[in-house]
Nucleic acid binder design. Structure first.
Length: 727
RNA sequence: GGGCGCAUAGCUCAGUUGGUUAGAGCGUUACAUUGACAUUGUAAAGGUCAGAGGUUCGACUCCUCUUGCGCCCACCA
């Protein structure tokens, strides 16, 4: 063996060896208890950052542990098409390199181009997953937008439509004029912004606004029914007043939605461009008039301002109102939150649009339910399914505090807008011909059917992710074995987007939960506690760390000190320290190799009981017991998903107990018997460590085999049996 | 406005049912060593476990309040 451990010499070869042997496949433990995880699919166009490395490592530790326990273990790889994000990135490049936009191409052509772009990026991601040593079953690689997933998506859509859970409606939605698409409520990010706040005279009232450009359509003035200041005004009363483009007739509306504490307690409403105003308008059956179009241009209702962009028009409108003496005052230091698209950053302009929705509060009959507390054939809503799945304990969320957050979210959930006006994604499987509408898997027979041009929210296909890669709806065998998944390990920031949607989809389509457990991990931050992001340019390429210190060192450093659900601070020093640990293990192995003449050829024992019998020295016996105790501690931690505690304990033991004390002790008195014990215990230690540090443990294992130190046993440590105190 | 979390050694953090001198990594200091170890080993310094009160025989751990950070949700006419 070389003097020091050189990770570059081993890692790639060992990974290829494992893969070729088929050791990542569940079939190596055909009779084991099923254990399954699906990889949260990374965005195809991105690169793996340190957070992915962390997330993947947690899963690989669980997977390798269960595989060694003898479970029929499946870890399913895949990537996500990330509709909006991918198309936006492509369009940016298209514009930069070729000065072209999506409108220069046919739909088919454009889709093909984006897809090609996406898939060309995919290789890089997959290469990174290999480098991290992740034991994924590559033969099952899936993509959220491949043919099989398309079938799954269309099947899901059709089933929901037939149950009346998917409907089309004209509703106020979050419109991103920049990306020209709808954005879901939870895809909105509020950004603090300072804007002038205007107080205008509106007849006898004073109203406040930051958005004068929306005010053309305001012909209703709303006040609280209990507001004494306005007790002389009656609901439905009409008043004449002078407004931007001349005299108008306004109607008084009394509604609790008006806050008496705020400003004058009176507001006008713009139903077409505000969600709350829209609700008020619907409640009272008021007229709804569009003022601003898709692109942020004022419509004819704006009179002389028609055709202007809202950004430019604002100042001009205020100027005109000033001249008319309708401006009461302007507060220049008003700070408020502006809704923006979290992917792309466009400012949201609420609009009324015809969109597809998933009804979360509509009752339907769930024929086949395996969810505790929901009877087959009973009437439920999707919301109830999502709630019950967690309440019943069928899905356990860890850390537990996130369950509260989950319930709170569910309780406030509104119908889910699933249609997007972009091209890249799953096209809505609905076809129209005159007044006919057809929903199904394929275009219906006959001529002149036109498919809906919208695509589905990327989370619609992600919601199917626990079972669509297993072959649903065509192949049920895989489902039987591996669904529900044993555990899901996403970051906590994705709880609503994804975890909740998977519970919804699985509950409705399969009548069961998607997974038994959710382990929410934290965000990896840099030394200053900042999130890694492209804009801050503080990103760390995992491959750089791997190259410098080795995959094992990176994996170990990420897990060390990372308690469930807590954020992790990434520190390169920690990785360096773990590289030293790899080297320490290597040198422990070298010590054994150098002393092998003492033991010549022998079969190392993996049974603690057997070792206890063989051991002659009391000190050796003591270390057999200590190691057995360690094994029971480690397995306990792993079973409870306390990976950090397991990693910390094993590190401490290997270095500061086994090496510093035991090896130092045995060094002076080594004989044939002690050698056998020492070597056997060391190999047990390697097995305990393997899920965390797969490469160095395997490298040593292979060196031992090659040098005749370890005669029997399997040809890879990764399929050896995980040490348990009883065996 | 509603909710949640965090506060432990210079830095980054562990500490799961309340029980003897509170731990690790990195960093700092001293000494040793070419040894299986691009070092490693031995040892040291460093903490009224944010503050105040309470429960208890006993609190870093449970309860209440205060302070300082961070996050989520809602909403801003």
């Amino acid at each position: 063996m070389d003097k020091a451990y050189d990770h570059k010499k081993y890692e790639d070869d060992l990974y290829n060896f494992w893969e070729k042997k088929g050791y990542f496949k569940p079939e190596i433990n055909p009779d084991g208890k099923p254990y399954s995880i699906v990889l949260p699919p990374p965005n195809v166009t991105g690169t793996l950052h340190i957070g992915h490395a962390f997330e993947g490592t947690l899963q690989d530790v669980a997977i390798r542990y269960h595989r060694m326990k003898g479970d029929k273990t499946l870890w399913l790889p895949g990537t996500d098409h990330a509709a909006i994000a991918t198309q936006a990135r492509f369009e940016k490049e298209l514009h930069k390199k070729h000065k072209k936009s999506r409108h220069d191409f046919s739909r088919e052509k454009f889709f093909g181009m984006v897809n090609e772009f996406a898939l060309s990026n995919q290789d890089r991601i997959l290469g990174q997953l290999h480098k991290m040593g992740f034991s994924l079953d590559w033969d099952r690689l899936a993509f959220t937008l491949d043919e099989k997933r398309e079938t799954a998506v269309r099947t899901a859509f059709e089933k929901m439509y037939k149950k009346g859970l998917i409907y089309r409606g004209d509703r106020i939605v979050n419109w991103d004029p920049k990306a020209q698409t709808t954005v879901a409520d939870d895809e909105i990010e509020y950004v603090e912004q300072k804007d002038p706040f205007y107080y205008f005279r509106y007849g006898p009232f004073v109203i406040g606004t930051v958005r004068p450009e929306t005010k053309f359509g305001d012909k209703y003035v709303v006040m609280h029914p209990a507001d004494k200041r306005y007790k002389d005004y009656k609901h439905g009363q009409k008043i004449e007043l002078e407004w931007i483009n001349g005299p108008i007739e306004a109607t008084i509306i009394k509604d609790e939605a008006a806050d008496m504490e705020k400003g004058s307690g009176v507001m006008t409403i713009t139903p077409a461009h505000s969600a709350i105003d829209f609700e008020i308008a619907q409640k009272h059956g008021l007229d709804i008039e569009q003022v601003i179009n898709d692109r942020g241009i004022l419509l004819s209702i704006a009179g002389e301002f028609e055709g202007q962009h809202i950004k430019k028009a604002r100042a001009l409108i205020v100027e005109k109102l000033k001249k008319k003496g309708l401006v009461e005052k302007i507060d220049e230091s008003y700070v408020h939150n502006v809704a923006t698209n979290y992917r792309g950053g466009g400012t949201i302009e609420p609009q009324i649009k015809r969109q597809w929705f998933v009804a979360v509060n509509k009752e339907f009959v769930l024929e086949n339910s395996k969810i505790s507390g929901i009877q087959s054939g009973s009437e439920v809503t999707l919301k109830q399914i999502m709630k019950k799945a967690v309440e019943s304990g069928d899905v356990k969320i860890e850390p537990k505090r996130f369950e509260k957050i989950y319930y709170h979210w569910i309780n406030n959930l509104k119908d889910w807008c699933i249609s997007r006006q972009i091209i890249y994604g799953h096209q809505v499987p609905v076809w129209y011909r005159d007044d006919d509408l057809y929903v199904g898997l394929n275009e219906p027979d006959g001529k002149e059917w036109r498919q809906d041009t919208d695509t589905l929210d990327t989370w619609f296909s992600s919601g199917l992710w626990t079972f669509s890669p297993l072959g649903w709806p065509d192949d049920v065998e895989g489902l039987k074995t591996f669904h529900p998944n044993s555990i899901m390990m996403p970051g906590y920031e994705i709880l609503f987007f994804w975890v909740a949607r998977m519970i919804l989809m699985s509950g409705f389509l399969l009548g069961e939960v998607p997974f038994k457990r959710v382990y929410l991990h934290g965000i990896v931050r840099d030394k200053d506690g900042k999130k890694f992001s492209k804009s801050l340019d503080n990103g760390i390429d995992p491959l750089e760390m791997v190259d410098k210190y080795g995959t094992d060192a990176l994996r170990m450093a990420l897990i060390f000190g990372a308690a469930v659900g807590n954020d992790v601070v990434f520190d390169e020093q920690k990785v360096k320290g773990m590289k030293h640990f790899s080297n320490k293990l290597w040198n422990m192995a070298r010590f054994i190799e150098i002393n092998r003449t003492q033991g010549s050829k022998f079969k190392a024992q993996s049974s603690f009981e057997e070792l206890d019998k063989i051991a002659k020295h009391n000190t050796d016996k003591k270390w057999v017991k200590k190691t057995a105790r360690l094994a029971s501690e480690i397995t306990k931690h792993l079973d409870n998903y306390k990976f950090n505690l397991a990693a910390e304990r094993i590190y401490e033991f290997a270095w500061h107990e086994f090496a510093d004390v035991y090896i130092e002790d045995v060094k002076t008195r080594i004989d044939k018997n002690s050698f056998v014990i020492l070597n056997s215990l060391f190999i047990i230690l390697l097995k305990l460590l393997h899920p965390f540090m797969p490469f160095v443990t395997e490298a040593i294992y292979q060196e031992f085999r090659k040098n005749g130190i370890w005669i029997e046993g399997k040809d890879s440590i990764m399929i050896e049996k995980y040490p348990t105190p009883k065996s």
